[in-house]
């Protein structure tokens, strides 16, 4: 018994050391991004390049906002990520409820098929998908990109929520039904309130995934009015001349929204994941 608590104490030390190492490993690349964004070109290139910016400057950020439509990109990314999140939450909730609680032919096939949609390689799908969007006249629109992103977020959300809904005790819903609630009523009044952390997790994933997407955004968007942050970044690469300073500034700023959202929702997300794990 004593040996266990002694081991535990030494484990705490091991843990602290490893934690420090992992923080270094995780944060140094992020540091380099920020450091580069605060440097002048002279400090960026070559062996005169500095590890710490000697003359820190916000010039790269100023250039970003003054010379490029970066704010517009941020707005577009926000519209698209929020739109995708809401649509996937609604679609996902409805579909997941059906799969978790209703009996109908094809249930198992659909439930399992959801996972397989991930296997479909996006690197190639963009050409037929582009044809679909052209047909629907949705190329170069926010709606078009949102619709495209549903292709990966809806199956994922449905799949996740299906699991959570199943873990909500059946008796609660039965009671509601006996009280004269409709199916949808019980979904809204009984199941959803109990699944808030799960909805937070799902929303969080839908948001970050669409915020970070590059491949589809690159092909399906032409105009500045719709262009997202990730694809706007590549415009810093003018043929074969890189502009690392402004590019790293833009990179840093575009990583912030998902981080802030995680910071705010962290408790919910961990709780949501925990809830999902209970039955594990």
């Amino acid at each position: 018994m004593r040996s266990v608590s002694r081991t535990r104490r030494s484990l705490q030390w091991v843990g602290n050391t490893l934690l420090a190492l992992m923080l270094v490993w995780t944060l140094v690349p992020f540091y380099w991004m920020i450091a580069t964004s605060l440097k002048k070109d002279r400090e960026i290139y070559g062996f005169e390049a500095t590890l710490i910016p000697h003359q820190p400057t916000l010039a790269n950020y100023a250039r970003l906002f003054a010379k490029t439509p970066f704010i517009l990109y941020l707005r577009n990314s926000t519209i698209i990520a929020v739109g995708t999140t809401i649509a996937s939450l609604v679609f996902g909730t409805l579909g997941a409820y059906a799969l978790a609680r209703l009996r109908f032919p094809g249930r198992k096939v659909i439930a399992r098929g959801l996972v397989f949609t991930y296997l479909v390689p996006p690197a190639l799908l963009f050409i037929p998908l582009f044809a679909v969007m052209s047909t629907l006249r949705l190329v170069d629109t926010h709606q078009g990109l949102i619709l495209t992103y549903l292709s990966f977020s809806v199956p994922f959300c449905t799949w996740l929520l299906m699991g959570y809904f199943r873990s909500v005790p059946l008796e609660l819903e039965e009671a509601a039904l006996v009280d004269g609630c409709t199916r949808l009523g019980s979904l809204v009044r009984v199941i959803l309130p109990m699944s808030l952390p799960a909805l937070a997790v799902v929303a969080f994933f839908a948001f970050t995934q669409s915020w970070n997407e590059f491949l589809y955004a690159n092909v399906f968007v032409n105009s500045v009015e719709v262009r997202t942050v990730t694809t706007g970044l590549t415009l810093f690469i003018v043929e074969d001349v890189f502009f690392w300073g402004p590019m790293m500034a833009a990179s840093f700023l575009s990583a912030l929204p998902p981080l802030v959202i995680y910071l705010i929702f962290q408790r919910w997300v961990v709780k949501g994941l925990t809830l999902g794990a209970v039955k594990g």
Binding site: F126, I127, V139, N218, T234, L235, I237, V238
Partner: peptide, 17 residues
């Protein structure tokens, strides 16, 4: 505005559609 790096992929998709 289309970045040169991406031009080929975009044009291919556009032509196909």
């Amino acid at each position: 505005v289309v970045a040169n790096e991406q031009a080929q992929a975009k044009l291919a998709a556009a032509i196909e559609a």
